[in-house]
Lab assay of single mutants.
Amino acid sequence: MASQGTKRSYEQMETDGERQNATEIRASVGKMIDGIGRFYIQMCTELKLSDYEGRLIQNSLTIERMVLSAFDERRNKYLEEHPSAGKDPKKTGGPIYKRVDRKWMRELVLYDKEEIRRIWRQANNGDDATAGLTHMMIWHSNLNDTTYQRTRALVRTGMDPRMCSLMQGSTLPRRSGAAGAAVKGVGTMVMELIRMIKRGINDRNFWRGENGRKTRSAYERMCNILKGKFQTAAQRAMMDQVRESRNPGNAEIEDLIFLARSALILRGSVAHKSCLPACVYGPAVASGYDFEKEGYSLVGIDPFKLLQNSQVYSLIRPNENPAHKSQLVWMACNSAAFEDLRVLSFIRGTKVSPRGKLSTRGVQIASNENMDAMESSTLELRSRYWAIRTRSGGNTNQQRASAGQISVQPAFSVQRNLPFDKPTIMAAFTGNTEGRTSDMRAEIIRMMEGAKPEEMSFQGRGVFELSDERAANPIVPSFDMSNEGSYFFGDNAEEYDN
């Protein structure tokens, strides 16, 4: 993207840094990872977990959730003011799984939030270390993106479920800051804005008074975040219109849905970061690795190297396929839920299948599930090659597409044709070009129609051997075009429920 120079890199967003050079960025990201790792080690000690239990991804998720809940100030305040039966607002906890007599047992633990905050700050040299908290939120978000298709949420806001490739980060909490905003897809931002506008339509006082002023500035800020994701002048001009509207209503909703559809071809720039579970960072720190000293990046080879040398386990339900569970977590670790499966298959070195073909449910185990038949197995999170994460949407291309997802959002900077089903997408653009945004709409449609099938995206960008740390010898991959490109292809993934 041309304006790259004016933006802070995501590592800076990730670490609240002012302008830093590459070495400083690597050190501050490393410091953040160190903090998460030290916190995780301490929690495993508190909970008396064995090494194996500490490497269980379900335990990692519970521990991450506990610290996120302990620092969720708004919710904590709300819980104190609106006490609900049987919930102690000062405590947080969740299921911890232990191996007892050759069987997995679930144990519900409860801790004072104050105590968890103390352990977290102690692991982070006394700081609140917001960057580390956001990092864990993005890992949870990436896992949700890989596990669930947001059909219901899309339909509720009037969008087409086939636009799911635009929904990265749709389950990120509001408090995820600049680093969170960077990884949100165009569809996620559109959905947040539509929800806001709908509230304004239904509630006369939404934009009024002292609160209304705050609401208005939040609305304009979200519009600017979305505008910054678009790469064409016409899309940005249309966002200006939406932002400046005196009284946002149905016309703005129409414009936003139009823009979301246009992003299936004229893709937005959305950041991709490899955020790993805390149970990967903990053992690495415990083994003596100093992330701050060595430096770390979320968008280069580092996460690949770390996963190459990590042992992570997962509980497996009786009829689940461990290899499929591994694929789910591998995609989440690489922030690749909406990437082209052919690119992923090449990088991973084994075939990556669409969601609907995987015999696996989510990673988390519900409290009512029976533990008797639970097994555990090693997650295979290694890769054959590594590639640089991208934040450009890439230019655009036609490809055989599917009944489910009709476009992709690249996660890796790797040369390819970008699949999208042009006739299906263009069919949504018939007729409606009147109104105050008509010239911009016409211009956007013209650009979409001009998108050429034979153009290559990320020209000359390749993948790298894991021994090639400096990215000196790019390998331009070859793809098996007979395979499906979309992950949520004609899909039956479970729906995400809060």
Results as ranks from 00 to 15, higher is better:
Gly435Trp: 12
Val476Asn: 00
Cys164Tyr: 01
Gly187Met: 05
Asp16Ser: 03
Ala451Asp: 05
Arg236Tyr: 01
Ile365Cys: 06
Asp240Trp: 02
Asn247Val: 11
Tyr78Val: 08
Lys77Tyr: 00
Ile33Ser: 04
Ala129Tyr: 01
Thr134Ser: 15
Leu466Pro: 12
Arg389His: 00
Arg382Gln: 02
Ala403Asn: 14
Leu256Gln: 12
Gly249Trp: 11
Arg208Met: 12
Gly177Tyr: 03
Ile201Met: 12
Leu328Asp: 03
Gly450Trp: 06
Asn370Cys: 10
Glu380Asn: 07
Val476Glu: 12
Gly37Ala: 10
Ala27Val: 14
Asn483Tyr: 11
Ser60Arg: 09
Arg75Gln: 03
Leu266Pro: 00
Asp497Pro: 00
His272Asn: 07
Gln241Glu: 10
Arg102Tyr: 14
Asp290Val: 10
Asn417Val: 09
Glu244Gly: 12
Thr151Ile: 07
Asn21Ser: 15
Ala234Asn: 07
Thr232Gln: 13
Ala332Thr: 13
Arg236Asp: 03
Leu56Cys: 12
Arg348Ser: 08
Arg74Ile: 02
Asn397Met: 06
Ser165Arg: 00
Gln231Leu: 14
Ile116His: 01
Met371Ser: 08
Gly300Thr: 03
Ala153Thr: 12
Lys7Gly: 00
Tyr281Cys: 09
Val109Glu: 09
Leu358Val: 12
Glu192Arg: 10
Pro453Phe: 00
Thr232Pro: 06
Asp101Trp: 01
Thr396Cys: 08
Ile36Leu: 11
Gln398Ser: 01
Glu455Tyr: 04
Pro83Val: 11
Trp207Met: 02
Gly209Gln: 09
Tyr40Glu: 01
Tyr148Lys: 03
Arg267Thr: 02
Asp203Ala: 07
Lys305Glu: 06
Asp112Ala: 12
Ala181Asn: 09
Ala472Gln: 11
Glu434Arg: 04
Tyr496Trp: 15
Met371Trp: 02
Ala401Ser: 10
Thr45Met: 08
Pro161His: 02
Gly209Cys: 07
Asn473Pro: 01
Arg470Gly: 00
Lys31Ser: 06
Ser50Met: 08
Ile116Asn: 09
Asp127Asn: 11
Met32Val: 13
Leu49Ile: 14
Lys103Ile: 08
Arg441Met: 06
Asp421Ser: 15
Pro277Lys: 06
Ser287Thr: 14
Lys452Pro: 13
Ala442Arg: 00
Asn370Ala: 14
Ser84Pro: 03
Leu276Val: 13
Met448Asp: 07
Asp302Lys: 08
Met374His: 08
Val190Ala: 15
Thr232Met: 07
Tyr313Asn: 09
Glu320Thr: 10
Ile388Ala: 05
Ile444Val: 15
Ala337Ile: 02
Thr215Cys: 07
Ser376Leu: 03
Pro318Thr: 10
Arg446Phe: 00
Asn321Glu: 02
Ala218Lys: 03
Thr62Asn: 15
Pro277Trp: 04
Gly362Trp: 07
Glu81Met: 06
Ala403Gln: 14
Asn473Met: 13
Ile388Ser: 03
Asn309Ile: 10
Asn224Asp: 12
Val242Arg: 06
Phe429Glu: 01
Phe464Glu: 06
Gly17Asp: 00
Glu192Leu: 06
Phe464Arg: 00
Ile388Trp: 02
Lys184Phe: 04
Phe464Met: 00
Met426Lys: 03
Tyr487Met: 05
Asn21Thr: 15
Arg26Val: 01
Leu298Met: 12
Gly349Pro: 09
Asn319Gly: 13
Phe420Leu: 13
Phe412Tyr: 13
Gly485Arg: 15
Val414Lys: 01
Gly5Gln: 00
Ala337Glu: 06
Ala427Arg: 03
Gly185Trp: 02
Tyr487Phe: 12
Lys273Thr: 07
Met137Gly: 01
Ala387Cys: 08
Met239Cys: 11
Arg99Met: 06
Gly35Gln: 02
Met222Glu: 04
Ile445Ala: 15
Glu455Ser: 12
Gly93Ile: 01
Val190Tyr: 02
Glu18Ala: 13
Met167Val: 06
Ala442Lys: 09
Met196Ala: 12
Glu11Ala: 07
Met222Ala: 13
Asn397Leu: 07
Ala179Gln: 06
Phe346Gln: 10
Ala373Ile: 06
Met189Asp: 02
Glu434Met: 08
His324Met: 09
Glu339Trp: 09
Val312Glu: 08
Arg204Asn: 03
Gly93Val: 05
His272Tyr: 11
Asn76Leu: 12
Arg236Ser: 08
Ile316Thr: 11
Ile265His: 01
Phe489Ala: 00
Tyr487Asn: 09
Phe458Lys: 01
Arg204Leu: 06
Arg118Gln: 11
Arg348Asp: 03
Val463Tyr: 12
Leu466Arg: 00
Tyr496Gly: 11
Val109Gly: 05
Glu443Gln: 13
Asn368Gln: 13
Thr350Glu: 00
Lys214Val: 07
Leu306Asn: 06
Asp51Ala: 13
Asp497Asn: 15
Ala336Thr: 14
Gly185Ile: 03
Met481Leu: 08
Asp290Tyr: 09
Asn321Tyr: 12
Arg162Ala: 08
Ala22His: 07
Arg441Asp: 07
Asn142Arg: 03
Ser176Gly: 14
Met1Val: 09
Gly94Pro: 04
Pro248Gln: 13
Lys48Leu: 08
Asp372Gln: 08
Gln311His: 07
Pro303Lys: 09
Arg38Thr: 12
Asn205Gln: 08
Arg199Ala: 07
Asp88Lys: 01
Arg75Thr: 10
Ala123Pro: 05
Glu465His: 00
Leu466Asn: 06
Gly268Glu: 09
Ala263Glu: 05
Asn334Gln: 06
Met43His: 11
Thr360Arg: 02
Arg461Phe: 02
Ala472Leu: 00
Gly158Phe: 06
Glu115Trp: 06
Cys279Glu: 08
Thr130Glu: 01
Arg175Pro: 02
Glu53Ala: 14
Arg117Met: 14
Ser217His: 03
Pro248Cys: 15
Glu115Cys: 03
Arg246Lys: 15
Arg19Ile: 00
Asn21Gly: 04
Pro161Ala: 15
Asn224Lys: 14
Gln308Asp: 02
Leu358His: 11
Thr92Arg: 06
Arg65Trp: 04
Ser326Trp: 06
Gln149Tyr: 07
Pro83Ser: 13
Pro410Leu: 00
Ser407Trp: 04
Asp51Val: 13
Met105Glu: 07
Asp290Pro: 14
Met331Glu: 02
Phe206Met: 11
Cys275Gly: 09
Ala411Pro: 01
Ile96Trp: 08
Lys305Leu: 06
Ile475Tyr: 06
Lys7Ile: 03
Gly54Leu: 03
Ala471Thr: 09
Ala403Trp: 01
Pro453Cys: 13
Ala218Thr: 15
Glu115Tyr: 05
Ala70Ser: 15
Cys333Gln: 06
Phe304Leu: 13
Gly169Pro: 02
Gly30Ile: 02
Arg195Phe: 09
Val414Ile: 14
Ser353Leu: 13
Arg441Thr: 07
Glu443Val: 12
Thr62Tyr: 06
Glu81Gln: 05
Val100Tyr: 14
Met136Tyr: 04
Ser467Val: 13
His82Ser: 12
Glu11Asp: 14
Glu375Tyr: 05
Lys325Gly: 03
Gln405Arg: 05
Ile475Arg: 01
Gln327Lys: 12
Thr6Ile: 07
Tyr111Asn: 07
Gln311Pro: 00
Thr215Ala: 13
Ser467Phe: 12
Ile225Cys: 13
His324Thr: 06
Met447Lys: 10
Tyr496Cys: 09
Gln364Asp: 00
Asn211Pro: 07
Met371Cys: 15
Gly187Asp: 05
Leu193Pro: 03
Ser3Arg: 02
Leu264Thr: 12
Glu11Ser: 12
Ile197Thr: 15
Gly94Arg: 07
Ala427Lys: 02
Trp386Gly: 08
Met371Arg: 00
Pro83Ala: 14
Gly282Asn: 05
Ile388Asp: 12
His324Asn: 11
